[in-house]
């Protein structure tokens, strides 16, 4: 089940999108996510659609693979749509089984917008994680936050925590599997009973898992100190980042397309 989540995974490749400087990619994703909420009209979303599919195509990732990332959010999207359809005041479109709960025309419009926004948000941001390795992402983030160190943002520490967290996800998953098996062998039952019973049955998994995680953290800290770790001060990096001319050009083009998507909405076309 956990393996099906494409959100936040890395899809190895060597496309222009993969090779783009992670700093620019992060900035563009932030721009994309923000502008999504300023787009009015379906034409604007049409432009975003073409742009998103274009980038995914350029990255060489199969579109269905990216769309699968929406699956875990299916419930959230349906719920948002329902709330919008029935809770927005306006002209009544239809009533639900002759109850006072009414769907409005405005609500339906709103719901379509929200569904589009959420879907593009998830798909668009997953393009970032799909095309950048965790190392590139954390590195990019550290460097982007670098200037904010002066006002006390612990840029290096944030990046370090992120990369250690990513590093230990598979290790802890493996450990969880082991604990589940061990507890099952002792007769633990995780499959029957109502939701509260099942939640309670998780305790014998979570307690050893947390104990193990703390022990690991202890040992890791020791190993890091033994390798002269002393925070971000005077640290150098094996991989240097280079922003190339083509990086800047493609970022500029992307920004222009996104700006166009917003503008067509405001121009009142459709």
């Amino acid at each position: 089940m956990l393996k099906d989540i494409t959100l936040g995974q890395y899809y190895p490749g060597n496309s222009p999108v993969h090779r783009m400087d992670p700093r620019l990619k992060i900035l563009l994703t932030v721009l994309y996510a923000t502008l999504l909420f300023f787009i009015k009209g379906f034409l604007g979303y049409g432009v975003v659609f073409i742009f998103t599919v274009g980038v995914i195509g350029l990255a060489g990732i199969p579109v269905p693979y990216v769309v699968r990332g929406l699956r875990p959010l299916f419930f959230v999207i349906v719920f948002t749509a329902a709330i919008n359809i029935f809770m927005t005041p306006g002209r009544t479109a239809f009533r639900l089984f002759d109850t006072p709960i009414a769907a409005t025309h405005e609500g339906i419009y709103m719901a379509v917008y929200m569904v589009l926004r959420l879907s593009f948000l998830v798909v668009g941001t997953s393009v970032l994680t799909l095309t950048s390795s965790p190392v590139a992402l954390t590195d990019g983030l550290e460097r982007l936050l670098g200037p904010f160190k002066k006002i006390g943002v612990p840029a290096h520490e944030i990046a370090m925590m992120m990369s250690i967290a990513i590093r230990f996800i598979p290790t802890l998953m493996e450990e969880t599997q082991k604990i589940i098996k061990a507890q099952k062998a002792r007769g633990a039952d995780f499959e029957s009973g109502n939701i509260f019973r099942r939640a309670k049955a998780l305790t014998p998994i979570l307690v050893p898992l947390f104990m193990g995680a703390f022990r690991r953290a202890d040992e890791l800290a020791l190993a890091m100190e033994s390798r002269c770790y002393n925070g971000g001060e005077n640290r150098t990096r094996l991989k240097q980042m280079h922003m190339t001319l083509s990086d800047c050009l493609s970022a500029a083009i992307a920004a222009l397309v996104l700006a166009a998507a917003v503008t067509v909405g405001y121009m009142g076309i459709l």
Partner: peptide, 23 residues
């Protein structure tokens, strides 16, 4: 519990990076 990075060569680079060695 002593491997820090998500890629082998990044992990090997961890100590010299801490020591401020040139790239």
């Amino acid at each position: 519990n002593q491997i820090v990075a998500t890629i082998v060569e990044e992990d090997v680079a961890f100590a010299p990076e801490n020591l401020g060695v040139a790239p």
